[in-house]
């Protein structure tokens, strides 16, 4: 059986909120290392990969592999009933029909309990090859969100060009063009404001802004976001969570001109 207790419901609320517009039905794969999720959007352009390590829960117990097939719209409805600071416990039997969620208020003696019916989801699982990326950019997640939103006002696509000079986000649209360039930057007092660019070779790729703006819903999960790029491979956008847990998005590039 599965029993996984989160100190704050907030974490799951934010994760589900960040992915629910991209993917609808997904398997939460539970085993002794934690709870993982991998799902592609309907058009096979973007993929979300979540890992909540067992260390992110206290306690965490999962004796055998359990796949919880959950509709994220349903999960969102139930998670709305949890306060951000509630203690959240997920429970399921070994061959479950439902997943049980318990929300406990730390301040009062209120305990609420919900069951969500599970679905049988036959999900294609993709192998993601280990990639040595040509460019890795760490930057404030709020800055990335702002750039994507600002450029989406002009265009559907953004080119991300990484060179010795820095990283340039550029777009061209009907009303004109725009770009934002960032250089490496260290803020001793506020390390979450750092911009770090690790480059082995110059990269230039074009991506759909609609998807990037969607990924940015995860911004409240982490002060920093990591962008990993290599020519002609999908972009990796990673939000690191505590205890080596993470929320990653992959986005296929656009080609041609």
């Amino acid at each position: 059986m599965l029993e996984a207790r989160l100190e704050q419901a907030n974490l799951l609320k934010k994760v589900v909120d960040a992915i629910k517009d991209l993917v609808q039905d997904c398997n939460f794969d539970c085993n002794d290392s934690g709870i993982a999720l991998q799902a592609m959007d309907n058009s096979h352009v973007a993929l979300v990969s979540m890992m909540l390590k067992s260390e992110s829960f206290s306690p965490f117990r999962c004796d055998r592999n359990i796949a919880l097939g959950i509709n994220l719209t349903s999960l969102t409805k139930v998670l709305r009933a949890a306060q951000n600071e509630d203690i959240l416990t997920l429970k399921a039997e070994d061959a479950p029909d439902v997943v049980n969620l318990v929300f406990e208020s730390a301040e009062s003696d209120r305990i609420s309990e919900y069951d969500i019916k599970l679905m049988d989801i036959d999900q294609e699982h993709l192998g993601i090859p280990e990639t040595e990326y040509a460019a890795t950019i760490s930057m404030p997640s709020a800055e990335f969100q702002r750039i994507c939103r600002d450029l989406m006002a002009l265009s559907e696509s953004v080119s991300i060009e990484c060179s010795k000079e820095g990283v340039k986000f550029a777009c061209q649209g009907d009303i004109g063009s725009g770009s934002v360039t960032l250089r490496s930057h260290t803020n001793v007092d506020k390390p979450e404001m750092n911009v770090e660019i690790d480059l082995t070779e110059p990269v230039s790729l074009t991506f759909s802004l609609k998807y990037l703006v969607g990924f940015c819903k995860a911004s409240s999960l982490s002060g920093q976001v990591k962008l990993c790029l290599s020519n002609e491979v999908p972009l990796l956008v990673e939000y690191a969570l505590a205890n080596n847990s993470y929320l990653r998005f992959y986005l296929a590039p656009k080609i041609g001109d």
Binding site: H44, V45, L126, G127, P234, A252, K254, G256
Partner: peptide
């Protein structure tokens, strides 16, 4: 003129 690629081109099915 720009073509959106899909992830199937890059990631293999397991």
């Amino acid at each position: 003129h720009q073509v959106q690629q899909t992830l199937d081109t890059f990631f293999c099915s397991r």
